[in-house]
């Protein structure tokens, strides 16, 4: 069984609950799932969906737990929960865990197709995608063209597909569609 983590910041809607008792439900459980739902959730922070965000990295969960509607502090900790989802999920439960990297890449099965998730910038371009807050300059370098090519000056292509893959890898993130049962929430750690 894989171990996942969820960081809960002070003052956010799940902070007041003990998820070992309540489990976790998505914010919009009746919404339909699609790859677009997944991309909007991860790349655009549209978290009002049928999915729950989890990470494989305790360090990433700590980072989210430190930043709620208040930053954490001694006496006012955020929480990181350890979660194990049985594989296969028990009968009667409907949770499905989606791997963003796998789902986005498999939606482009043909590398010969004219449209793809790759960028057309230089080798620094991905630094800007990973860390746009502080490396935005790498997103803004003009794209290069072969000699003799007439083209409108522009920045490299950055698709939502590439953003999703990069963000999912950065945050070691998966999405769980459906309810996470209380019995699967094993431990809670306080984080300041």
């Amino acid at each position: 069984m894989a171990r996942f983590y969820k960081g809960i910041g002070v003052g956010t809607h799940l902070h007041a609950m003990d998820l070992r008792v309540t489990g976790i439900s998505p914010r919009m459980p009746t919404a339909a799932y699609s790859v677009n739902t997944l991309m909007q959730h991860i790349a655009r922070a549209t978290t009002t969906s049928c999915c729950i965000s989890l990470t494989r990295s305790y360090g990433i969960a700590v980072w989210y737990a430190r930043h709620g509607k208040l930053v954490s502090a001694p006496g006012m900790p955020g929480h990181v929960y350890e979660i194990e989802i049985p594989d296969p999920a028990p009968l009667g439960t409907t949770v499905v865990v989606h791997d963003p990297v796998s789902e986005v890449s498999s939606s482009y099965p043909n590398p010969l197709a004219p449209s793809f998730y790759y960028h057309d910038g230089d080798s620094d371009f991905l630094l800007g995608v990973v860390n746009p807050s502080h490396m935005k300059r790498f997103l803004q370098k003009p794209v290069m063209h072969p000699p003799g090519t007439a083209a409108t000056p522009r920045r490299p292509n950055l698709s939502i597909e590439l953003e999703t893959v990069v963000r999912a890898l950065r945050d070691a993130e998966v999405l769980a569609e459906g309810d996470i049962l209380p019995a699967w929430v094993l431990q809670r750690h306080d984080v300041v």
């Binding site: 910041g9 003052g11 956010t12 790349a43 655009r44 922070a45 978290t47 930043h67 709620g68 509607k69 208040l70 860390n131 746009p132 807050s133 963000r167």
Partner: peptide, 15 residues
């Protein structure tokens, strides 16, 4: 008494 979260990388307001 509370604030709202801003994800600078995603350029998204979370609350």
């Amino acid at each position: 008494p509370l604030g709202i979260r801003l994800d600078l990388d995603k350029q998204a307001i979370l609350d």
